[in-house]
Amino acid sequence: MKKHKFTIAVSGLNAIDSPGPGVAVIRGLREADSFDVRIIGFSYESLEPGIYMHDVVDKTYQIPYPTAGTDALLARLAYIHDIEKLDVIIPNFDAELYSFMKLEDTLKAMGINMFLPTIQQFEERHKVNLPEFGKKYDINVPFSKSIFSTSEIYSLNNEFVFPMVIKGKYYDASIAYNLEQAKSYFNKISAKWGLPIVVQQFVHGTEYNVTGLGDGKGNTIAAVPMRKQYITDKGKAWGGISIDDKRMIALTEKFVSQTKWRGGFELELMKGQDNEFYLLEINPRMPAWIYLAVGCGQNIPEALVNLAMGEEVAPYTDYVKGRMFIRYAWDMIVDIDEFHEISTKGEL
């Protein structure tokens, strides 16, 4: 039977020390059994490597930064859609998700499908709101507080013991062992990601992640837990292994059923010395290591596209345990003309 060919736009083509999930998502899509794809890359900067990976991305368009507003984004998407006839968009950056969620109905009317969390889900799970989230859904979360100025750091002594984690609104986190470090990380991270800064009690333990997919009705369509084996100084997994931890699966199913989560997600967990899992963060999108889930038999990007297209998707019930991913960097040789093209015309 001939497979349907979808045109799918994917962002997150960057691969710096905090790599975007785009290329990993595309690898999953290209390996999908249920459809063929033409991949449109969405980029923000001219040096995102995915732009130049022509066997991964068929054509790339630059799109405006979220700060330009949804009108500018919509105008650009309308232009791209006119040429490419997009079936699905998969945004992969936390910082851009809000704009796409705002535009979901408008894009749907244009024939472009997405499968994103609702704005309520997106806000509720935000690291700023994590303590309330934990209370509401009865999930262990470390104590945390949002602060707006360095002067507030001095009063934290009453509520926190060092070390504490200083976290940016969207990305970045550093462990502070004293007030001076806390202040310095506050300034550094707030300059990059704005306010508030989230101060979270540091939990000693081992880091685990789960990536999964919720159908928006409370069903867990996919869930693959992973233990980080090799961690960069940014805290990113550069190697990991799929594991068979029933408690993590139960926690994931609880999260999905209670929030009726819609879309891909990643739960960042810490197993403390008391052997309990603490939820450190909920990322409202697929993680950069999503291809491990594909490699373990759960093609989450494929399932997400089918859900976006309104198909019924049966939940995955199993995955390969003990399968690893090891990330590597690869220097591509790129002609200056290609750089010139994307830099000046915003298309390649």
């Binding site: 992973m226 233990r227 990991g240 292994i241 799929s242 594991i243 068979d244 931890d245 003990g322």
Partner: peptide, 19 residues
């Protein structure tokens, strides 16, 4: 029960990923 051990003595605990 889940512990896997190879002929060469490599032990893998699939519950927590330790080897």
């Amino acid at each position: 029960k889940n512990i896997a051990i190879s002929d060469s003595g490599f032990v893998f605990n699939p519950v927590n990923g330790e080897s």
